[in-house]
């Protein structure tokens, strides 16, 4: 019974927040953010432990697996871009992954953070569902990873255009690759301001870098931990 209530309330709150976001498209109204905050406030104020909530929540989470598999569909649709810019895309994504992993690793090592927190931060540039599952695979803390993924996304969306101005970046392909592989879906939503080509390159880079990142993160962990 309790499980059913948690499932229904999560779905209903999400649907309302989704509608709200469709009406007012501000980044701080992202359904992930608003729905999570509302549910956390509800759980805290009624003193409901997370484990109790998950009696219902686990059924919703279960659909995440096939949904991630479904990401093959948009990837397949954008394959024409791959053949046109093969080398640029492949090297760009590897540069982004290597840069992301090494910079976060050394910064956190310098500040002597716990290994579990460093592991948690490694998948930050991947799209949230994959980042959380990679975090679980390498013994990080998945919900904390999700928060860091949001920061990477908002950082890119808010300050990415400034970086492009600074580096005098003109090409939609370069903007798409860098934003998609560093700031995933939240970041590429900002590419709408540039062009359609920016956007499709961004979502292709997001999908490809999620796969490459999921493979590279465990290898990185084997070498450095």
């Amino acid at each position: 019974m309790k499980a059913v209530i948690f499932i229904i309330s999560t779905v209903v709150i999400f649907l309302i927040m989704n509608q709200l976001y469709k009406k007012y498209t501000y980044p701080f109204l992202l359904p992930l953010l608003t729905t999570t905050i509302i549910l956390v406030i509800i759980l805290l104020s009624f003193d409901i432990p997370y484990a109790d909530y998950m009696e219902g929540g686990q059924y919703i989470q279960h659909l995440l697996g096939p949904a991630v598999v479904g990401l093959a569909f948009p990837l397949y649709n954008q394959r024409h871009l791959i053949s046109k810019y093969k080398y640029t895309i492949i090297s760009g994504i590897f540069i982004a992954m290597i840069s992301g992993l090494f910079t976060i690793y050394f910064m956190l090592r310098i500040f002597k953070l716990d290994e579990s927190l460093i592991l948690t931060a490694l998948p930050k540039s991947l799209t949230t569902p994959i980042a959380m599952q990679v975090s679980e695979t390498i013994n990080g803390i998945p919900p904390l990873t999700a928060v860091l993924v949001m920061i990477a996304g908002f950082g890119g969306a808010l300050f990415g255009p400034f970086v492009y101005k600074l580096g005098k970046i003109q090409s939609p392909i370069s903007r798409g690759i860098s934003m998609g592989s560093a700031s995933h879906g939240v970041g590429i939503s900002k590419l709408r301001d540039y062009s359609e080509e920016d956007l499709s390159m961004g979502s292709l880079a997001m999908g490809l870098s999620a796969i490459v990142g999921a493979i590279l993160c465990p290898i990185f962990v084997m070498i450095f931990f």
Binding site: T88, S91, G92, I95, A96, S99, G100, T103, I104, M107, L108, F111, L113, L117, T120, A121, K124, S125, L144, V147, L148, I151, A152, G155, G156, F159, G160, V163, Y164, L166, G167, I169, Q170, S171, I173, S174, R175, I177, S178, M179, S181, A182, S183
Partner: peptide, 21 residues
């Protein structure tokens, strides 16, 4: 953790866009 993630993201966008171009 959050500041490091932000800086790492900015650096990655910069280096990736510059080299990709």
């Amino acid at each position: 953790l959050m500041i490091a993630v932000f800086l790492s993201t900015m650096f990655t966008i910069f280096i990736t866009s510059t080299l990709s171009e």
